[in-house]
């Protein structure tokens, strides 16, 4: 039953990615999705008897999320610099 919580977090993250228009909103969704994935690894480690491995993989995922966020912010800055907005609907290219 508690694994449903991590699934719910992941599902809400996916919903947020689909619903939001701006790049920052999409990044919020990705953060929620990654939060759900981390929780899934911790709970799966507990249920499979490999508790420390679950914690370590969760640790790796949390720090990987930081790298993803840095790349997302860089894309947002590029988009804002070129177009003056971060709306993702009309995004086709990052070149001029």
């Amino acid at each position: 039953m508690i694994l449903l919580v991590s699934g719910l977090l992941g599902g809400l993250g996916l919903a947020c990615i689909v619903l939001r228009r701006t790049l920052l909103g999409i990044l919020v969704g990705v953060q929620l999705l990654i939060l759900g994935a981390t929780m899934m690894f911790v709970l799966s480690g507990i249920s499979s008897g490999a508790r420390p491995e679950g914690h370590l993989f969760g640790f790796f995922i949390v720090l990987g999320a930081v790298a993803q966020l840095a790349a997302g912010y860089a894309l947002a800055i590029r988009r804002f610099y070129l177009r003056g907005q971060i709306d993702m609907d009309e995004l086709r290219t990052l070149k001029r």
Binding site: L4, G7, G11, L14, A15, S47
Partner: peptide, 15 residues
């Protein structure tokens, strides 16, 4: 938001 939690709930072993 509905399908992913359901898939996780059904497909995962209980803790």
């Amino acid at each position: 938001a509905v399908v992913l939690p359901c898939a996780v709930w059904i497909g995962s072993p209980a803790v």
